[in-house]
């Protein structure tokens, strides 16, 4: 058993806390996160409202807790879309002949050159702003990085002698992809997924800030930031708490990705 590395532990703990927070928010939050109460507008942090309240009197802690659901939903959808399209594309590009592979990878480069946020804003304009459209757009924008990473891993696997042995035994390309290539690139998929997760969280925050993400009243960390704009000087905590939440979440998923990479990378054989 290999020693756990610090980034894997730190990342794992942060991600676990966010997941726990989202789960707890389904059964309990200090206040109803969407409850507007004009009497308690813009309260300072106190024992009754740990993080204070916003301009509608909603409890910030409750909003952050419920907002973590949006964050996780966003990550899962975006990474899901990216992996479901990107992984087969990457494996395909590694296994086909030279020029079809070139076509796939150049199309990939084209998409890579297209700004993810712009794509999401376009999707929002065409299909209506919602968390789901934004996330599908972010997912599509993350396809190229998946395809690239998986292709390079798959190319390495295709060069191994066990793939030659499988071919010599008469295995067809599709079963080789399924039985040999896919299992041997799962570590790459995991690493790429956690990194893409962090990017998706940040993108959702940016889109909600611009008004193309999660529509009100569903709590979202990005929209909390946007709503805090007018109070940036009078009540900076409105921006600070969701800002910290976003930063910690992104850091957590990045650390997890780094940790997983270190754990998987050095030598495949040392893994188990």
């Amino acid at each position: 058993m290999k020693r756990l590395n610090p980034s894997l532990i730190a990342g794992g703990v942060i991600v676990a806390v966010i997941v726990l927070m989202a789960l707890v928010s389904f059964v309990w939050t200090p206040y109803d996160a969407t409850l507007v109460s004009p009497a308690s507008r813009l309260l300072e942090p106190s024992w009754s409202h740990w993080f204070g309240t916003d301009k509608f009197g909603r409890d910030i802690l409750s909003q952050i807790m419920v907002g973590s659901r949006t964050t996780l939903f966003v990550g899962v959808v975006a990474v899901g879309v990216a992996a479901v399209i990107g992984v087969p594309l990457g494996i395909l590009a590694a296994m086909v002949r030279r020029w079809p592979s070139e076509v796939i990878m150049r199309a990939n480069d084209l998409l890579l050159a297209f700004p993810a946020l712009l794509l999401a804003i376009m999707f929002g304009a065409v299909f209506g702003a919602s968390t789901l459209t934004a996330m599908i757009a972010i997912g599509i924008a993350s396809v190229p990085s998946f395809a690239r990473v998986i292709r390079s891993g798959a190319l390495q696997v295709m060069r191994t002698e066990y793939v030659l042995a499988a071919r010599a035994a008469g295995r067809q390309p599709f079963p080789i992809a399924l039985r040999h290539v896919l299992p041997n690139v799962t570590s790459l998929i995991t690493v790429q997924a956690s990194v893409s997760f962090a990017i998706a969280v940040l993108a959702e925050a940016a889109l909600s800030f611009l008004g193309y993400g999660t529509p009100p009243p569903t709590p979202s960390w990005g929209r909390m930031l946007q709503e805090s704009q007018e109070f940036l000087f009078s009540a900076p905590r409105l921006a600070i708490f969701p800002g910290i939440a976003i930063a910690i979440a992104v850091l957590g998923f990045n650390l997890l990705g780094d940790g997983l990479r270190d754990r998987f990378d050095p030598k495949l054989e040392d893994r188990r």
């Binding site: 191994t160 002698e161 066990y162 042995a165 499988a166 035994a169 295995r171 039985r179 054989e269 893994r271």
Partner: peptide, 28 residues
């Protein structure tokens, strides 16, 4: 059938030895 040079890379690290040996049988 072939036997390859590098015993590190000629066996799929994700498969049990049983499945590795049975692979040509299953395929054929």
């Amino acid at each position: 059938q072939l036997v390859f040079q590098d015993p590190m890379s000629s066996l799929d690290p994700r498969m049990r030895v049983r499945d590795i040996i049975a692979e040509p049988l299953v395929v054929q």
